[in-house]
Design a protein around this nucleic acid. Structure first.
Lengths: 91, 91
DNA sequence: TTTCTATATGCAAAAACTGCATACCCAATT
DNA sequence: AATTGGGTATGCAGTTTTTGCATATAGAAA
């Protein structure tokens, strides 16, 4: 399912125009992103937690040439599924 | 930030009551979950992709006792941040 | 049409996962 | 508004899993 299909579903479920549904959805993702940018984690009960994970620098490799490469430290957004979410998929 | 705080922010940004903002948000998470339950991945351009990862059974270990443990196969929801999202946190 | 994403490759190192106790924070009920 | 029940974070070791490097291409999405 892509974003467009999701927006269509939301449009129906929320009784909104597609444009409004999309705007609503974008507002939510932006709100979450803003919190993450401010180095805050976002905990959503029954769904999961978004947090920014810091990854250390390390040695990588160019798979084509086999050549070693230094990989800089980086940050990435992590999503940790809530307990309820894990149970849904393991019953 | 927890769900309640997020709902308050959305309520302001979307000009909705808190109850409506929460209902809207729940509808979105439920829609995503339904797709995942149907074994579909959810790809949101500019944000990320949710998919269900299947993990095989394996042998683990109790860190306290060192005892070997059989771990059953399981599934978990994975979130892969989109390119745009990685860039935000690495500039 | 033009941008975005998945894939596939080998390999080193970081990170996750396991059980479990404690502390903590949140959500819901009274 | 306050209490309580429950989910979540943390630390521990050692093994499994994941990550992410470059790059082209195919396919899909905006």
């Amino acid at each position: 399912m892509n974003k467009k299909q999701l927006v269509v579903k939301l449009s129906g479920a929320l009784n909104l125009s597609k444009a409004d549904a999309e705007r609503t959805f974008d507002t939510i993702t932006n709100t979450i992103l803003d919190a993450l940018k401010a180095d805050d984690s976002v905990k959503i009960a029954g769904f999961g937690t978004y947090k920014v994970a810091k990854r250390k620098a390390r040695v990588g490799r160019n798979p084509r040439t086999g050549e070693q490469i230094q990989i800089a430290a980086s940050q990435k957004v992590k999503f940790l599924p809530a307990k309820a979410l894990k149970e849904v998929f393991n019953k």
